[in-house]
Computed example of a mutant assay.
Amino acid sequence: MGYLQGILILISINIVAVCGVIILTGYTGLFSLGHAGFVSIGAYFSAVLCKDFGVPFILAMVLGGLVAALSSVIVGYPTLRGKLKGDYFAIAMMGFAEAIRLLFSNIYPYFNGALGLSGIPKKITLGNALLFAAVVIFFTYQYVHSQHGRLALSIREQEVAAELIGVNVTKEKMKSLMISAFLCGVSGGMTAFYYTYMTPNTFSAEVSNNMLSAVVFGGMGSISGPVIASAILTAIPEVLRAVARWRLVIYGLLMVVVMLFRPEGLLGNRELSLYPLIKKYKEKKAGAKKGER
């Protein structure tokens, strides 16, 4: 039971980070290979604030997320104002994440350099992890279906046309990047308070790749798709741990098969909703009652 709870907690943590990438990549169309940098910033600052300064862990996670959001301005403003996009933006973000990793590897005493931080209080449980994930999913849904989300979507679909009708493209992209960085920072805080130990190498390029893979695998323009994909991509390596020698090969083959047969992702632009099933059940129940009469 403890092992299953651990997997569910990891899924919840990853979903929080993936929601950030959904806003930036899925709805604004900016591909990033460096969001592990924001996760690490949130993790380190949250851990230090709670461990060394006695800040309550929820507040520490929020503050860690805010620091991550502010740090996104450092890389986001010059690149987005310079009209970098596509591969160029992705590479710039990858360089930013690597710079952050090297920075944390050489900062003493609070971040403890390459030795990493230990003795972080364990605050994340299955209950609060699921709660945080649910709150973030709800926030993401509200955001992408608001005016801000529609503006982001217009930029993804046709940036030039959006600019012609008066959309401040740089401002909207920067807003998406900051929100995305904040959510990844909160996810980093959750990671720190769950593992209780971390080093700069904990937040390698693989973390960024997994988040981006979940969005592409789940479907661009969908929330439920990447959320489901994040759960699958988190659970599969653990399920296949019994065949440790071949698990990465099987994991890769599954990804290839899905991309071949569902290139638009699991759900594409659709959302998974229980409403049609509930409606059908109610109609069936109402029909049964009429039949009894």
Rank of each mutant, 00 (worst) to 15 (best):
I100M: 14
L8W: 05
L131H: 03
V169A: 01
A231W: 06
L253H: 04
L254W: 04
I100Y: 08
K51F: 01
V135D: 06
G29M: 11
N201P: 00
L240I: 06
Y77C: 02
N14Q: 12
C50Y: 11
I228L: 12
S40M: 13
V256L: 15
S187W: 07
G149T: 13
Q142D: 13
L267W: 03
S72M: 03
I15Q: 05
L183P: 07
N112F: 00
F31I: 04
N201H: 03
G225C: 10
F38T: 05
V227N: 13
I155S: 07
L126I: 15
I7P: 13
M94F: 07
G268Q: 04
N14H: 03
N106A: 14
G2Y: 14
L33Y: 09
V144P: 05
E271S: 14
P56L: 05
A231L: 04
R247C: 02
D52T: 04
I7D: 11
I7Q: 14
T28C: 13
V227D: 09
V243F: 09
R150E: 06
Q5D: 11
F182M: 11
F57V: 08
A244Q: 15
L115A: 06
V16N: 05
K122G: 09
N210D: 10
V257D: 03
L84Y: 02
G218Q: 03
I41W: 06
G252S: 07
E157W: 10
L84H: 01
G116W: 02
G291Q: 10
T125Q: 01
F31H: 01
P200K: 12
A229Q: 02
P263D: 08
I250E: 12
A17I: 07
I100S: 08
C50L: 11
K51M: 13
P56Y: 02
Y108Q: 01
F45Q: 02
T79A: 15
F53N: 01
V75N: 08
D87E: 09
I15E: 02
E163C: 13
A17Q: 10
I74V: 06
G6D: 14
L102R: 09
G116I: 09
R150N: 03
I250N: 14
Y275K: 14
G189F: 12
K282Q: 03
V136D: 05
Q158A: 09
E264D: 09
M93S: 10
A286Q: 00
N106E: 12
G29F: 06
I9E: 12
T28S: 10
S72C: 05
L70V: 11
L131W: 04
I13Q: 15
G166Q: 15
I165F: 02
P109Y: 01
Y197T: 15
E264R: 12
I107Y: 05
G291E: 15
S118I: 04
M198P: 00
F45R: 08
R101C: 02
M255P: 00
Y195D: 03
Q5S: 12
A161M: 05
D87M: 07
K51Q: 14
A192Y: 12
M220I: 14
I236P: 08
E98M: 09
M190N: 07
Y141G: 05
I13D: 10
A36M: 04
S118A: 08
T202S: 14
E264H: 09
L115E: 00
R293G: 14
T199A: 05
